[in-house]
């Protein structure tokens, strides 16, 4: 029987592949909501026993990553009336394959890092592969909204790594992180809205006027 936090972490990896493999924007957003909920459960699973700090972190994460951000994003696609990602630069199958390579690499590299064994076995590789998959989504997809999702996944990967330090780095950090991500995505959401209104499309590939 795997410990519960490892199960949660492996589910995080599955949600990454969910995003990589789907064409429907609504499914992408649902995947990030599920991922947000999993991340909210992680601090409690990793550090059992009641503590206001951990509980607050879990509640804050759930509120921002599982409810608020997905809600903002789904509002954005409703306004823009787009449903599907077009065939990206790197096809869906190829990007799934690249994601798998990232996961394999992360799991083989992480045990060499001089970190406590509790973390290197699952937490650190999941974190690093999530960062890479976030970058992959961000760079290969053409809809501005999917790129925001890619950025969120990237941030989620960093958040997972941050969880290994959560007891040493004070509370302020987590508030700052949640707030920054929220504000960042919020402003990006506004820009997505403007892109839609200005270009009648959420296609950031159309942003090509500026070049040397």
């Amino acid at each position: 029987m795997q410990p519960i936090h490892d199960v949660l972490l492996l589910l995080v990896v599955l949600t990454n592949f969910w995003v990589l493999g789907t064409t429907r924007l609504s499914a992408t957003i649902r995947a990030t909501a599920v991922q947000g909920a999993l991340l909210a459960g992680l601090p409690i699973a990793l550090y059992p026993g009641f503590s206001a700090h951990i509980l607050g972190l879990a509640i804050g994460t759930f509120a921002v990553k599982a409810l608020l951000l997905p809600w903002l994003l789904s509002r954005a696609i409703r306004e823009a009336a787009v449903r599907r990602e077009i065939e990206p630069l790197i096809g869906f199958a190829t990007s799934m394959l690249l994601g798998a390579v990232a996961v394999a690499l992360a799991f083989s590299i992480a045990p060499r890092l001089p970190l406590p064994e509790l973390h290197t076995r699952v937490l650190v590789p999941v974190s690093l592969s999530t960062v890479v998959i976030g970058l992959l989504v961000l760079t290969t997809r053409s809809k501005a909204l999917t790129q925001v999702v890619g950025y969120l996944i990237l941030e989620n990967g960093i958040y997972v790594f941050g969880l290994s330090q959560v007891q040493r780095v004070p509370f302020l950090l987590e508030i700052g992180v949640l707030l920054d991500i929220f504000v960042g995505v919020f402003i990006m959401g506004i820009v997505v809205f403007h892109i839609n209104r200005e270009f009648d499309s959420l296609d950031s590939a159309r942003l090509t006027e500026l070049r040397d």
């Binding site: 960062v131 970058l135 961000l138 501005a144 790129q147 950025y151 990237l154 941030e155 990967g157 960093i158 790594f161 941050g162 290994s164 330090q165 992180v177 960042g184 402003i187 990006m188 820009v191 403007h194 892109i195 200005e198 270009f199 950031s204 942003l207 090509t208 006027e209 500026l210």
Partner: peptide, 26 residues
């Protein structure tokens, strides 16, 4: 349109950069 394109690139690239800096901080 032009400033929209500029702000989009600015936000996406800066946010990724700042995200990696956070990973470095951790």
């Amino acid at each position: 349109r032009r400033s929209l394109e500029a702000v989009w690139k600015y936000l996406v690239l800066s946010s990724v950069g700042i995200g990696l800096a956070l990973l470095g901080t951790f």
